[in-house]
Amino acid sequence: MPVLTDLLFYAFAGLALLFGLLCVANPFSRNPITSAMFLVLTIVSLAGLFILLHAFFLAAVQVLVYAGAVMVLFLFVIMLLDLRQSEERQIRILTIGTGALAVAAIAGILIRAVIAAKPLASSPGLAGETKALGRLLFTQYLLPFEVMSLLLLVGMVGVILLSKKETE
């Protein structure tokens, strides 16, 4: 049923953009926790888009790692720091203006580039088989895969060292 998937694309894309907007520029709340919650929703919407692109494994990882682990970390830090007093600060028009200008420039360039680009010749066809992905990860990309585990270890050590209380 091609029509349903088309509708689902528009739905997920719209949700992702809406939640993204609410995450970075929520007119009702500047609480970081609100931003974090909307980021979770954006990520879930993106996972939906991934499924539409037949990247099932990545969609699962996206939800597990991002919406799960990473966002918990964010929330944890937000609560640890207790940042409510910064909410009282005034919004500066200049900051918003310059930010919007820069963003408009980049967005304009990107979209113009997308429109100007020649459409791809091939039709959508590749099924993002999890099995195939796994095979690729453990054959062609074995070394980067293992290096990545090392990177995670190093990151862990670094985090422990950084957030350790200074003993003075």
Partner: peptide, 9 residues
């Protein structure tokens, strides 16, 4: 960051 983005643009 702003200057950087303008530069990239």
């Amino acid at each position: 960051g702003f200057l950087f983005v303008i530069g990239v643009a």
